[in-house]
Design a protein around this nucleic acid. Structure first.
Lengths: 367, 367
DNA sequence: CTGAAAGCGCTTACAG
DNA sequence: CTGAAAGCGCTTACAG
């Protein structure tokens, strides 16, 4: 490996001088700079960031922990996030907990040892808030609550639930099936705050349906990383719907709306089509997320769009903030006992990004 | 940051001793080890890999460059790859060229500066083989030829083409439409070798169709990262097929088979269903890739499956090999001029992984 | 079995 | 404007 020393030797100067021109800091005569730069080119010199980072105690990398990449939601999120981070000259170290047999704890441990500047946490965690506090590294949570000292970013799922409820109401749906993850995620974690905000749109939707007199039921569709399982779940759901209809002596199922992730919605549309159920006349389908899947479904799905660009931008903002302030707070971090003093809501509040409803071909026009 | 020195101080020993127990190398008395470990626990000591890596000249990270994550193929690949690398204690640094405004060249430059142990290249490159040689870091190419000194891994696309041709022939299809990327990718790059092997399955398929007397045509569907564009392309294709049929005075289109990526196939199935074209009776659809998309299409897609697990395993194997041999070859690398001497096909040959045909509900049974 | 010393490749005050 | 020196946190021979 050719190092700074080699460049210095070639030009006949000290390494300090080479360092100065590499970093474009301090004063170097134009002629000197030119000679050094040429030597670097000739030797194909690559600055070793490792050494640099060791000195600066900064790596320019952030760890991103997601459950899986085999789901369009997280693929889209990571994609947008990596782009945003790259723009700020931050590299993305990817960790997927469900796709590898490496657990969240092991990943976090590695990320700490590798001196990541920050960690963006978007996967399920079994750790208590104390654990995350003890990491002593900038952390931003996505769609999760990791404790009230840790910044978090998420979509406005309550708004999402409302948009869907409104749509169902305005288009006259009377019986909706909501398809989502394991219902136990709905439970609070004792401390009053649910750690998994995504389910909020279901809760909101259910409340609004109750208020509007729309019948609704919830069906579990398996873990998020199991797309095929989700497809099977939707298939089974349609079997049941049709058999219910026959049992009731009716030709049409009473279910007239299905709400779920893009994946669910996508499956639902196709199930309906292949069974001769007309979309949206007989059945409305509304997706949640608004990933690319919503656009390659043959029919344009009606979806609540999460704003991936803004979400990523915010995540990047927060992590950069946290990194920049990490030096100042270093001493403050020592007396962890009395940390809950004033309250810095700026960094620790949950940053909520609006969603929007895109009406496609799978919902009826509003009367 | 609490360092080794702090631990040493607390126990009252030298840093060397602490280092020994951290690395579990050399001889340390059990009592000493116990005391040191306890101190590490008490202080929540985290070894700084940066320093360690600087000394060892190894980071335990590999850079993975893909065009996009917003496509199930690359999402699935990266997912499998990250898992495999993680098992070998290698971290994955993710770079997506189409999803960020960071070009391939810039990414490679960053990866070199950050001293990645290796680079896995799965994106398009405009660089000539000489460039890749000059990187002087372990590189493995995926589905691409980066020059004959660089190891490559890919699926057996010729076999894929054959499997599809066989299927079409055995089920009596007479007119197939192949939907794929820009046709100019088919062209060789002067040096005789195509740099983009994926298209080989189309070439093989076309040859076999010609031999079997199956009519075929090729339709471009836009860039790989543009899933929505792909959906529009398929839509337009169906419009044309139907209008052709009407123009010909026929009620049924002459096209009776569509072949393309999972995304294309997925769109095609839905387009067909919503237009009343029966799948597979009137139209067979065969997907290429075999990602999760093939399983959440309502109908189980018939697909040629790329073996992502094996592909990833091989990529990991090759990069680990290259990394392990990087020390030995350091000197050998100097006389790059006379590198083409004997030929080390072991490392440089293209590693070809078999594919398989899964027949689902979108093709007819073989007579 | 343990400690003092040199070094990994770079940066940054501090002298000249 | 440029060089000698100390240090980032760790590892590894080499003495004791």
């Amino acid at each position: 490996m050719v190092g700074m020393r080699d460049v210095a030797k070639r030009v006949g100067v000290s390494v300090s001088t080479v360092s100065l021109v590499v970093n474009a800091t301090g004063y170097v005569s134009d002629e000197m700079r030119e000679r050094v730069e040429q030597a670097m080119r000739e030797l194909d010199y690559i600055p070793n960031e490792l050494a640099r980072n060791l000195y600066r105690d900064r790596t320019g990398m952030v760890g991103v922990i997601v459950p899986t990449l085999r789901h369009p939601f997280f693929a889209t999120l990571v994609s947008a996030l990596q782009g945003r981070l790259s723009r700020r000259n931050l590299q993305t170290l990817l960790c997927a907990t469900d796709d590898a047999d490496t657990g969240e704890a092991e990943y976090v441990s590695r990320l700490r040892r590798h001196m990541m500047d920050g960690i963006i946490m978007a996967a399920h965690t079994e750790h208590p808030a104390e654990y995350w506090d003890s990491i002593r590294r900038p952390i931003v949570a996505f769609d999760r609550v990791l404790g009230d000292t840790i910044a978090a970013v998420r979509s406005d799922h309550e708004q999402g639930g409302q948009l869907i409820a409104r749509q169902l109401l305005d288009t006259g749906s009377r019986h909706a099936v909501l398809v989502g993850g394991p219902r136990k995620q709905f439970d609070d974690r004792g401390d009053g705050a649910t750690t998994f905000p995504t389910i909020r749109y279901f809760k909101t939707l259910e409340q609004q349906c109750d208020a509007a007199g729309i019948r609704h039921e919830y069906v579990e569709s398996g873990a998020v990383s199991d797309v095929a399982g989700c497809a099977r779940g939707v298939h089974a759901l349609f079997d049941r719907i049709e058999s219910d209809a026959r049992g009731g002596g009716s030709t049409m199922p009473s279910v007239d709306a299905i709400v779920g992730s893009d994946v669910v919605a996508s499956c639902a549309v196709r199930e309906a089509l292949s069974r001769g159920i007309r979309v949206p006349q007989d059945l409305q389908v509304i997706g949640y997320d608004g990933t690319y899947l919503a656009d390659c479904a043959g029919m344009t799905l009606s979806v609540v769009r999460q704003d991936f660009d803004t979400l990523s931008e915010r995540l990047a903002d927060h992590i950069v903030d946290a990194i920049d302030h990490t030096g100042d707070c270093a001493s403050a971090g020592d007396h962890a006992e009395d940390s809950h003093i004033a309250g810095e809501p700026a960094g620790h509040a949950v940053d909520i990004v609006p969603v929007s409803l895109r009406t496609g071909d799978t919902t009826r026009p509003v009367a």
